[in-house]
Design a protein around this nucleic acid. Sequence first.
DNA 1: AAATGTCACAACCGCAGTTCT
DNA 2: CAGAACTGCGGTTGTGACATT
Length: 210
Amino acid sequence: MGRQPCCDKVGLKRGPWTIEEDHKLMNFILNNGIHCWRMVPKLAGLLRCGKSCRLRWINYLRPDLKRGVLSEAEEDQIIQLHARLGNRWSKIASHFPGRTDNEIKNHWHTRIKKRLKILGLDPVTHTLVEQKRKELCGSLDVGLWLNQETTNSNSQSPSLSLKDSPNPMGESSSMKEDSIQKWVDSVDSMLSWDGFNQLEEELLFLENLQ
DNA sequence: AAATGTCACAACCGCAGTTCT
DNA sequence: CAGAACTGCGGTTGTGACATT
C-alpha cells in the first residue's frame, strides 16, 4: 500500500555539496525539469536524497536567484511583513523575487533581530521592551519640561524626573503619569517599524493636548 | 602567531498538510 | 476511507571565515 519511500538514507552522502554534484543536479534539472524529487538523485547520478536535492536547487542553484546582500529597503520591508505574517518565511520570501525563505530567515536571525534590539524593539512582538519604554518615558519628561520652560519663560533648572519636577500646569503628577502610560500603551499596541518613526509625531500630538 | 569568540550562511531534521494507492 | 509516501516549511545545527584578545 502507499508509495515507495523517499530514500532509505543508507549510503547517501550528506554535508556540503561539491561542484561536481552541483553540475550534475543543475544539468539534470535544466535538461529534464522537475517531475519527482525522489527520482532526481537516481536519474542525475547523485548519492543524495531527493529532499537534499530539492533544498540545494531552491536555495542555491536556481538560475533566477538574486545573490548578494539585502538592501536596507528590503530589510525594512521584511520587518513590516514579519510584523504582519510572523515567522512565515516562505510567505515573506514570496514578496522578494529571487530571494529564498532560507536566506531571509538567516538574515533575520543574524542581522535584523540585532537591529531591532538596538532600537529597543522586541523582535517577536515588535513592541517596545521595558527598558526602552523607561528610556522613552524619561525623554518624554524632558520634552514636557522643556515645553513648560518655553511657555512659562521660567528660568528654573530642568529636572529629568517627572515625579520630582514642579508642576506649573497645576496638574497632578499622577494624572500626568497616567497620560504618559496611556501614550506608551498606545505606542505599544500600534508600533511597527513605521510606528517607531512616528514617535516624534506622537510627542507633538501629546504636547498639543496640553 | 595562536587561541578564542563572533558572524554569516548552508544544510539537516522533524513536523504538518497534501497526494497517492 | 485508511494509511503510507511526498512535499514544503520552520527551527536548529554545523562549519568556515573573519575579528579580537
